[in-house]
Write a protein that binds this DNA or RNA. Structure first.
Lengths: 227, 227
DNA sequence: TACATCAAATCATCCGATGACTTGATGTTT
DNA sequence: AAACATCAAGTCATCGGATGATTTGATGTA
């Protein structure tokens, strides 16, 4: 009796990933057709398809119907996501804070009055929200702020980290995080309106620092059981 | 004739992801069995399996043979990687710069003499490298620097972005990027040795700024054809 | 109560068949 | 010769069915 026996699909994924990482198939080049891979790896074509689909979702492969399956990149996004998931809550919150403050820096020179008005509107909505909606409304403001940076990679990362952090906090049933108040949010908007990049960065950090400090303290109290 | 018709698997992935994001199936709960999903979405079971496999690889689902498929998380890693891959080179380089400078900020207070010695050693090796090895040695220094931040999430992200940026530059055959010189690297190490967080951040930005500026100018010249 | 056994539910894997799409070759027309 | 239409081969997309492996809760027994 053995535990955790890897599935055939997982092994196929590993084999293909290894081949790609080793440069067995050049970036931009084509990997063998599905039937050939199935024969080579001694698995069925369906198993190969599932493995290829995983690697395509990870960005390593690109499947073109009628043409073949091509190596798109050697940068392994799946590995990154995996490691990200294993990171502790504190680390994830740290990164989220960093992303948001840098987003503010990029957004400051690009903000126009309409953007400022929109952010202010989101803050109004946040204040008017019932407790059940508050977190969602709050997130909407931060999302918009990050979007104003104009950097879509930054936006995608922020999305993931904020969701991940919110989820972990929710599932650990620790609703004790201090909610940043309205003046702190206003300080960010004010700095953005003045195109004051450093001021915006500082405002964001001032807002998030208490959260991080509270979390660090909580972790010291409970010693471990993180993630 | 329509272009880019999404495949059934992609649509199935979207449908499942939407259901998860909407909380249709609770985190920790079970989604319907494969045959039921196939019937519900009007696709074959094989199509459902490929979609589930993608979401499992992304960390949203967890498949347990004999038991069922469970919702593990609502934080979508695959979507993030996808959007990251679509981001332009400039955006990715921007993010990489931000990650490295913030890593320096976190590393500054934690650096001990041994770390400084190691970084210096890596710089020596970098100088001594033949042109073929130079990029690799250079990357080793930066990797070590980020690792000193003590934040594994940051480390994973930096890994991905640096690989992605290097890959894009290599494939566009544009070896014209100005290589930051030794004094600029030394400035970082010096700031770290003095536990000067702001100084380290500034040193990193001074080092990378020319790269970013050069890239921006190149993009303006060639108008488009980015990524 | 504790344990062994069993059956149902569910996922894992394979196989074969048919359709859709891409691509390069071929042949025709201008 | 160049441009265009047609065609066939290669490749992925999707389906349906069949069988095995694993988990899990029910059942029966000591």
């Amino acid at each position: 009796m053995q535990l955790n026996r890897a599935s055939l699909v997982d092994e196929t994924v590993s084999a293909l990933r290894a081949g790609i990482a080793a440069g067995r198939w050049a970036v931009g080049g084509r990997i063998p057709p599905e039937p050939a891979l199935a024969d080579l790896l001694k698995v069925s074509r369906g198993t190969v398809r599932e493995a290829v689909r995983v690697l395509a979702a990870a960005g390593l492969l690109e499947v073109r119907q009628g043409s073949g399956t091509y190596v798109r990149s050697q940068a392994d996004g799946t590995g990154m996501v995996q490691r990200l998931g294993l990171a502790s809550l504190k680390e994830r919150l740290e990164v989220r804070c960093m992303l948001e403050s840098e987003a503010a820096r990029l957004a400051a020179p690009r903000c126009n009055p309409a953007d400022i008005a929109e952010l202010t509107g989101l803050l109004e909505a946040r204040d008017a929200a019932r407790p059940a909606d508050f977190v969602e409304r709050d997130l909407a403001f931060h999302r918009r702020l990050v979007a104003l940076s104009g950097n879509s990679a930054l936006e995608a990362l922020y999305e993931w980290f904020s969701a991940s952090v919110a989820e972990t906090i929710a599932e650990t049933r620790k609703p004790w995080m201090p909610e940043p108040d309205r003046p702190q949010h206003d300080a960010i908007v004010t700095a953005l309106a003045a195109h004051d990049a450093d001021g915006a960065v500082a405002a964001v950090k001032i807002m998030i620092a208490p959260l991080l400090a509270r979390l660090t303290r909580a972790l010291e109290d409970s010693s471990e059981t993180e993630n």
